[in-house]
C-alpha cells in the first residue's frame, strides 16, 4: 500500500496528464450525441450572447453593403411574386382549411458567428426553437443557399455551412433538371463540387444550379451557383462539376431559415416505406 502511494506520488505529473488528456480527447471523440447536445445548448446561449455583442459592433460598418444586397433581393422577390400564379386557386375549401395553403415559410435571422477558413465551417444564428427553428431546416442567404441547421437552443442555432465536409445538398441543373450531390472539397469559400450528374448530357460553363427540392430542407429552385468548370470522373460515367457558389460567405449577415410544414408527414411516410 505504501509502495503504491509512493509510486503515485512519484508519477503524479504523468498520472495527472494522462487523466486530463483522456478527458480532453473524450470530448473530441465524443460519439454519444445527447449529453453533447445538452452541453451545446448551455454553452451556445453564452456564446451567442458574446457573439451578438461583437456582431452588433461589426455590423455597423457593413450597413451600406448590406442595404444594397437587401434592395436587390427585394427587387428579385417582387419580380417573383408578380410572376407566380395563385397556388390556392382551384382548391376546394376543405383542403384549404386543413392546410395553410403554402408549404414553406421563411424565418429571418441574423448571423452572429461565421467562419470560412476551417475545414468544417459552422454558422451561428440568432434564432432558436422559440422562433420556430428546428434541426435539419435549410438556411438560405440573399444570394443562395447557406447550410442546414444542426443544433438548436432557446434563442440560437448552429448551422452546418455549405463550406463543411459534412454538408451534402441535392442540387440540379436548372436547364435540364438532372440532379446530383453538392459537396465542398475544402479549398476555397467560393467553390464547391457537384457530383453524380450523368456523363451523357450536355453541361456548359455558366449553367445555373438550383436546389432540387428532393430533400425536405430546401424547396425546389433556391439558387446555389453556376458551373465554373466541366470535368469528368476518371471512368467518364459522371461529371464532376466545379461550382461557383452564388452566396458570398464572406459577407453573410442576414439569412432565412426555411420551415417546411409538410416535413414531418413526408419523412414519416418515407420511413414507413423504407422499413
Amino acid at each position: 500500500m505504501q509502495n503504491l502511494l509512493r509510486l503515485i506520488i512519484r508519477f503524479s505529473f504523468q498520472i495527472i496528464f494522462v487523466i486530463l488528456e483522456i478527458f480532453a480527447l473524450s470530448m473530441v471523440f465524443k460519439r454519444n450525441p445527447l449529453p453533447h447536445a445538452r452541453f451545446f445548448e448551455i454553452t451556445q446561449d453564452v456564446n451567442g450572447f458574446f457573439a451578438t455583442q461583437t456582431n452588433h459592433f461589426a455590423r455597423f460598418f457593413h450597413l451600406s453593403d448590406e442595404n444594397s444586397v437587401l434592395v436587390t433581393e427585394n427587387a428579385r422577390l417582387r419580380n417573383e411574386l408578380a410572376r407566380r400564379p395563385l397556388k390556392s386557386a382551384g382548391k376546394d375549401s376543405v383542403s384549404t382549411l386543413s392546410q395553410p395553403g403554402y408549404v414553406y415559410d421563411y424565418i429571418a435571422a441574423q448571423v452572429v458567428n461565421n467562419s470560412i477558413n476551417k475545414q468544417n465551417n459552422y454558422i451561428t444564428l440568432d434564432v432558436g426553437y422559440r422562433q420556430g427553428v428546428r434541426p435539419d431546416m435549410g438556411v438560405v442567404g440573399p444570394e443562395g443557399i447557406v447550410g442546414i441547421v444542426r443544433n438548436v437552443s432557446a434563442n440560437f442555432s448552429t448551422v452546418i455551412s455549405v463550406l463543411n465536409s459534412k454538408f451534402k445538398g441535392s442540387v440540379k441543373l436548372a436547364s435540364t433538371n438532372y440532379f446530383g450531390t453538392l459537396i465542398w472539397p475544402g479549398h476555397s469559400y467560393q467553390e464547391a463540387v457537384l457530383t453524380e450528374i450523368p456523363g451523357h448530357i450536355n453541361v456548359y460553363v455558366g449553367d445555373t444550379l438550383i436546389t432540387s427540392g428532393l430533400t425536405s430542407a430546401f424547396p425546389d429552385g433556391e439558387r446555389v451557383g453556376f458551373v465554373k468548370e466541366v470535368n469528368h470522373t476518371p471512368s467518364g460515367t459522371f461529371y464532376e462539376l466545379k461550382v461557383t457558389l452564388s452566396q458570398d460567405f464572406k459577407k453573410l449577415t442576414r439569412v432565412y431559415v426555411i420551415r417546411n410544414f409538410n416535413k414531418t408527414e413526408q419523412e414519416k411516410l418515407e420511413l414507413q416505406t423504407y422499413d
Binding site: 496528464f17 480532453a24 470530448m27 473530441v28 456564446n47 461583437t54 467562419s115 476551417k118 475545414q119 451561428t124
Partner: peptide
Amino acid sequence: GFGVDVFPQGISGNGSSLGTHTAATLLIAF
C-alpha cells in the same frame, strides 16, 4: 485550453470539436 475551446469561436465558429485546444495545450505543458 478549455477556455479557448468554450468561447464563441471554440464551439461552432471554429469548426473544431470541443476539446482540441485542451488536448493540444495539455500535451505541450506535459
